[in-house]
Design a protein around this nucleic acid. Structure first.
Lengths: 260, 260
DNA sequence: ACCACGCGTTCAATATACTGAACGATATGG
DNA sequence: CCATATCGTTCAGTATATTGAACGCGTGGT
């Protein structure tokens, strides 16, 4: 039995690789560019180990050394990141993420992106039970009435709303549909405070949805998740619980897309 | 003498890290997702070595394994790439500068940095019209063939070329690609006299690019801009006009980075 | 000017991770 | 239906890389 700490569970140690990742993480997390010794201290590495690693990482383009000797992340990871972005579609990540999170298997989970003033449904995990509105992939709905749309709009600067709805607000779908731009602004303020968005019968009476945004590696909200319930299920307790879980799920998805 | 190939000159070997980088490079370069054994064969690694590496890289988020067992690049490098792009605020300055300079909106404008003997694309403003080569961020090309690469090489002392290409000049991409180090030197002399660099079909036949360097506050050339045209558009008049405008834009960018 | 400190770098000894062969499981073909 | 090939995985031995201490060197303090 070793007294060594930091032993990983799964398989081989490959410490050099793990150290390299830790170095890059540290450099890209801290806002000041560290020096070699400072980096060794921060990560608890022997100086010479850090030296060897940094030298190799410099050769490989993982790090660059500024004129004053401080270390920065290098250009090489751009290649991998670009490949990941090219290959990854939101949808498959969504499916995998939802499949692992068993919390929502009783509900219909949807994902949309914003296109102009409308949301487009790009993925949908059907509930394990009957009823429930069938969301079809590719379907479009006016963003101001949907939970995902409100979440996405709330993530945008307020001025963007004028460009989208300044001349012409979508026609209401139900008598609960938000009716004007000023009403929408009010809802978006509440949404930002709450952390997730709500749609209480605005696209169909009796249908209650919660929404939260998914961000990519730049922090931009690129998509939104929604959970669909019936209005009678939407007690304050349920809303709070499921809302929190949804925000968590959205954050998890963001992580898988490279977000911090 | 080692029987091992690929022995690096400089410092420590850190083979695990080098292998990991090779794996990621291979996966992001090939268009089909390889399996573990195939990857081991492609890189000449023992199966078990590849197994241990892949397992660790999976834990670290550098790789993800699809449902069928094939390997893809993971989301983790996005963080590093994002940090690189954020710190080199070249990119944001680039976007702003290009957005304000309406002169180039008909053309694709790219920006690269030099990494060894290759240029890495760190930003790209797509043209408003179809055609045009799609430059992907993170893409690499041999510096001697590209307009940006020539601009950056021309800004370096002549002796630097020997270190980069003294033993091994990149293989030509087209029949117009500059073929030797001495030919490159000749082109660089012309480039310095002209004030901007040209690529006439050296990375792709029919593609014509103009390049100019961007300097930071220390006066060092840190990046280069390029303008992409079709060869038929590249009349002497157009070249002179656009070349001058590009040099101006690059100088403007340099100013914004603190250059005198 | 002197000294002390911190940084980056080098080198030999040891504790380490990588290698090669073998295993069970699964998919393929006769 | 069985034989074969290929895949992913495990394990002990050896060749390997990492470690700790020491060296120059530049910098800032007294």
């Amino acid at each position: 039995m070793r007294a060594h700490d930091g032993v990983r569970s799964g398989g081989a140690h490959v410490p050099a690789l793990r150290r390299a990742v830790a170095i890059l993480d540290h450099i890209s997390a801290s806002c000041d560019a560290p020096t070699l010794s400072g980096l060794a201290r921060a990560l608890g590495l022997p100086k010479s180990t850090a030296h060897g690693l940094v030298q190799a990482m410099e050769e490989l383009g993982l790090l660059v050394r500024a004129a004053d000797g401080t270390l920065r992340t290098g250009p090489h990871p751009l290649r991998w990141a670009g490949d990941f972005l090219a290959r990854t579609d939101l949808v498959s990540v969504f499916r995998q993420s939802i499949a692992e999170a068993r919390r929502f298997e009783r509900f219909t989970v949807t994902m949309t992106v914003l296109d102009g003033g409308e949301v487009v449904y790009i993925a949908c995990s059907d509930a394990n039970r009957p009823l429930d509105v069938a969301f079809r992939i590719g379907m479009r709905l006016p963003a101001p009435f949907t939970a995902t749309g409100k979440a996405l709009l709330a993530a945008r600067p307020d001025g963007a709303l004028d460009a989208l709805f300044g001349q012409g607000f979508p026609a209401p779908l139900t008598r609960y549909s938000v009716a004007s731009l000023s009403d929408l602004r009010r809802e978006l303020v509440e949404t930002r405070q709450r952390g997730f968005s709500l749609d209480d019968g605005q696209i169909r009476e009796g249908l209650f949805c919660l929404g939260a945004t998914v961000s990519d590696h730049t922090g931009q909200a690129v998509a939104a998740l929604a959970l669909s319930l019936t209005r009678s299920e939407a007690t304050p307790d349920t809303i709070a619980t499921l809302g929190g879980a949804l925000v968590e799920a959205a954050a998890d998805l963001s992580c898988r897309l490279g977000g911090g």
